[in-house]
Structures are given as structure tokens and as C-alpha cells.
């Protein structure tokens, strides 16, 4: 059981703080979604975990050790950072053989991951002839090479076709169910919502949220109920007395903000008001994310940041 632990991590490039006092853990057995706008520090954090960049202060460890001190780095962490990171003059198979040799992995693993990622048929072609989707699959193949305990993927669905997106989602699910740790960054909210159990959200290098996905949705979205009834005015009176603010739309349907069907249904039943339709509106990760990051935008434009709560 190996986790990634980031503690007080800070990285400055000249005057810019790309990562600012970050603390979070990526635990085994679940998929952790890594969210944040471009430039929020997600990729930098991943590079710091791999020891590629040196932190200004703080630590990033894998299984309690710095990446550089791991005995078998490729068997510990499989990472996809940049699908372009391969010399175009090499064939896909040679590219993986170079990595396998460095990681003391048998050549049989090269052929296995080529099959697994669906690029075995183009394995002997030069990488320079690859499409973005094929490069992405090759990058994922490299990450899978060591059958690692931790999987760290930066935007893995980039360039993949819909089939490939489902495949990578299932792959991450399998890893997590197998008790491994998975950290996946994405700018696609629906993608992240479909696979993540836990979320780490960054904004301007700082931690905005580190929470389960359901808790995140509960905190940052307001539930809403839509209903249709034959006795609109009576229902309105009842709901207003209960502290709700029902609003009727042009089509006759009612919307109740900040309410759940579990609350509205029993009230209508108690009052004997006929309900023709009653539906709770699921909170979307996108709405929750935007609510959180718009708070962050406000935060960053105030002159005295400490005086304002997010």
C-alpha cells in the first residue's frame, strides 16, 4: 500500500510561486481527481513528486521516501506527464525497451503493455508518425510498464477517442479497486466526475479543496427540486411557511431552490397536495467547481486577502 504524501510543498520559478505551501495525500484504493485551472500548479506538483523539479521548500514522498531514493522507481510510480516526451526517431517498441532496460523490467512487459494499450500493431513504427491519440496511448503504456503501485496521469484522456476515454477510465478504476493509488488530472469535469472518488483542487498553486467527491458536491452546490402540481398556489403557501422559496416557471413547473425531494415530498403528502412530477436536480461537478473557483477569483482580487473568507 503506497501513497503519495505532499507536505508544505512550495516551488518558485523566479518571482512566480507555481506551488504554494501545498499539503495533501493521494491514498491507495481510490482515484483522486486533480483539478484546477491551467497554471494552477498540477503539472508542477507531479514533476516535484517525481523529483524532476526541486522544491523550494517542503517535501513530496512516495511510500514515505523521496522518489530519487526508491529502489525500483518504475515499479513504484507509473507516470504520464507529457505524451510528446519521446524521441520521434525511435519506434514505439524501442522507446519502451529503453525504459524497460533502465527499470530492470523484462522485455516481455514491453509487449504486454503494447497489447494492453492497443498499439501493438504500430509498435515498430517511428513515433514521429504517430497521431496524438497514439502518442497518448504510448505514454500510458510507459506508465504501465512497471505495473506500478501508484499511477499518476496528467490529462490522460487528451487526444483519446470516446472508446479510449472509457478504457482509461476503467483502467484507473481497476487500479484503485486493486488497492493502488491513482492521481489523475483533467480539465474535463464530466470525466473526473465519472471516475474520481476523491478530489484535490488547486488554484494559483494553493490547495482549495481536499475532499471526497460527494462532500465536495454537497458543499459547493445547492440542491434544487422541480415539481408539477395541480394546486400550485396552495403548495406555494405551505412551502413559504416552511421557509422555502418556490418559483413558478412559464411552463407551470415549480422550482424550489435549496431543497431536496426527501423534504418536499413528505410536506406535499402531509398537506394532501397532489404532485404530478417531483424531481431532484443532481448537482454537477462542473457547477461545484465553478462555485469554488469563482470564490477563489474573488479572493485573489481583494487587496487584503486575509480579511476575506472563501
Amino acid at each position: 500500500m503506497t501513497s503519495i504524501d505532499v507536505v508544505n510543498l512550495t516551488k518558485e520559478y523566479g518571482q512566480t510561486r507555481a506551488v504554494d505551501g501545498l499539503t495533501f495525500s493521494v491514498l491507495p484504493g481510490r482515484v483522486t481527481g486533480f483539478l484546477g485551472p491551467n497554471g494552477a500548479g498540477k503539472s508542477t506538483t507531479m514533476r516535484l513528486v517525481l523529483g524532476l523539479d526541486r522544491p523550494t521548500s517542503g517535501t513530496a514522498t512516495v511510500g514515505g521516501r523521496s522518489y530519487a531514493s526508491l529502489d525500483e522507481p518504475l515499479r513504484t510510480v507509473g507516470a504520464l506527464l507529457d505524451p510528446g516526451a519521446a524521441l520521434g526517431a525511435r519506434t514505439a517498441r524501442d522507446h519502451l525497451r529503453v525504459l524497460a532496460a533502465a527499470g530492470r523490467l523484462p522485455t516481455s512487459r514491453v509487449d504486454e503493455v503494447l497489447e494492453q494499450t492497443g498499439i501493438a500493431s504500430v509498435a515498430r513504427r517511428r513515433i514521429s508518425t504517430f497521431s496524438l491519440g497514439m502518442r497518448q496511448r504510448l505514454g500510458i503504456a510507459a506508465a504501465l510498464l512497471g505495473d506500478p503501485a501508484v499511477l499518476m496521469l496528467d490529462e490522460p484522456s487528451n487526444g483519446l477517442d470516446p472508446e479510449g476515454i472509457i478504457w482509461i477510465r476503467e483502467l484507473m478504476r481497476e487500479f484503485a479497486d486493486d488497492g493502488r493509488a491513482v492521481l489523475v488530472s483533467s480539465h474535463l469535469m464530466s470525466e473526473t466526475a465519472a471516475v474520481a472518488d476523491h478530489l484535490v483542487v488547486l488554484g494559483k498553486g494553493r490547495l482549495l479543496a481536499d475532499t471526497g467527491i460527494q462532500d465536495f458536491l454537497d458543499e459547493w452546490t445547492t440542491p434544487r427540486v422541480r415539481l408539477r402540481t395541480t394546486e400550485g398556489e396552495r403548495l406555494r403557501g405551505v412551502l413559504v411557511r416552511e421557509g422555502y422559496q418556490p418559483v413558478q416557471a412559464d411552463d407551470g413547473r415549480w422550482t424550489v431552490e435549496n431543497a431536496r425531494v426527501e423534504e418536499i415530498g413528505p410536506i406535499a403528502a402531509r398537506e394532501g397536495i397532489p404532485i404530478l412530477e417531483l424531481a431532484g436536480e443532481g448537482a454537477s461537478l462542473e457547477a461545484a467547481y465553478l462555485a469554488l473557483t469563482s470564490g477563489e477569483a474573488e479572493f485573489t482580487t481583494t487587496t487584503s486577502p486575509l480579511s476575506q473568507e472563501v
Binding site: P73, A86, L87
Partner: peptide, 19 residues
């Protein structure tokens, strides 16, 4: 220079982190 074309060095150093 093969390492510095298209950032291949990141993969190389992830495989062999001891510089």
C-alpha cells in the same frame, strides 16, 4: 541532445532518478 528533444529527459530521469 536526444534527451532534450521534446522533454524525453523527464521519462529518462523518472526511470533512473539518480542523476
Amino acid at each position: 541532445a536526444g534527451e532534450y528533444k521534446s522533454g524525453a529527459i523527464r521519462l529518462s530521469l523518472a526511470a533512473v532518478p539518480h542523476r
